[in-house]
Nucleic acid binder design. Structure first.
Lengths: 180, 180
DNA sequence: GTCTATATCAAGATAGAC
DNA sequence: GTCTATCTTGATATAGAC
């Protein structure tokens, strides 16, 4: 499935970057090809249709997200809400605006809302794991939702927080997850 | 600015409904005109460009949201976090899937991310009001974020909750806002 | 103020050479 | 596996009648 790095990775990166810059509706195969440094023909060899490109973008985003969560899980000390803290750390502790990849979701949504199904399933898995391990499942899920809210707002560009405010909010979420 | 009801309201309703059904990228002027029962020429008389239509959609969404918040504010008893509770009630206590109007945001975002600026400003106002009245501003903002997360996930179609789970989460958020 | 054309162009996808 | 055409459609916007 992920054989040679080839142009595939380049194309997926280019597409994700472009959405953030020009809006999901203007994400054209021409623009993606140009940005990725391949021709439209070459692009369509790897992804036979625009939908298949968007599908791959969503899948890669979900895969990477879960990988970051596993990594965070391993380096975190034991304690209550370990999974929750891992998910929060994995998603929150990156530069606010460094979430270009997340724009993949918007492009997919704009083309065909059903393409986001893999993301919905990933959320289901995350919430199930978080709720199961927690002594206060409701609180844990609310904290997970707050993180999602912050991230989604940043993707949409509607976050009302400046850098310092964001830092404070993130702190508050993480603190609550530690049970303080 | 909002002179006669004319076709404007019909058009805005039709457009918002359509996004949810066919995806932001397929929201065409033809489709909007057909759904609204006007011709494309008639549509373009009211909204001289697609962007101006989307701009109006965003503005109306924001206005209605703040209006609901004011209404909720009036009917809520005094007590701690009154503004927060009003905002939460206004946004959460409607049918989960009855948020067609919210899809206006996605259509605008897909066309031009800058069109969401009025929404960002509205969030800024909301957060400022919520934080100012609260004795624990950080907690209040986290709860607001959780609500935003739930709503945005529902708009995107990535919410992992079924009806009963959603009810529970909403309960948990509202309870926390009451300081319990 | 609303309609019916129609000009114009952008974008997805195909065909076939290299 | 990547490229350069090219076909075809669909969508924005304009012009001008009613």
């Amino acid at each position: 499935m992920a054989g040679r790095p080839s142009s595939r990775a380049q194309v997926l990166d280019a597409a994700a970057e472009l959405v953030a810059e020009i809006g999901a509706r203007h994400l054209t195969l021409d623009a993606v090809a140009a940005r990725a440094g391949v021709s439209k023909g070459g692009l369509l060899y790897n992804f036979p249709s625009k939908e298949s490109l968007l599908q791959a973008m969503v899948q890669r985003f979900v895969d990477r997200q879960e990988e970051r969560e596993r990594e965070a899980m391993e380096r975190l000390p034991e304690g209550p809400n370990r999974t929750l803290r891992a998910v929060l750390a994995a998603q929150l502790e990156r530069a606010p605006m460094n979430c270009k990849a997340a724009h993949s979701m918007l492009a997919a949504m704009a083309e065909n809302p059903q393409l986001l199904e893999p993301a919905r399933c990933a959320s289901e898995r995350a919430v199930a794991a978080i709720a199961q391990e927690s002594e206060a499942p409701d609180v844990a899920v609310v904290l997970w939702l707050a993180m999602e809210g912050l991230l989604l707002q940043e993707i949409l560009g509607t976050s009302p927080f400046d850098g310092e405010q964001r830092r404070q909010v993130v702190e508050a979420i993480l603190r609550a997850a530690e049970g303080k």
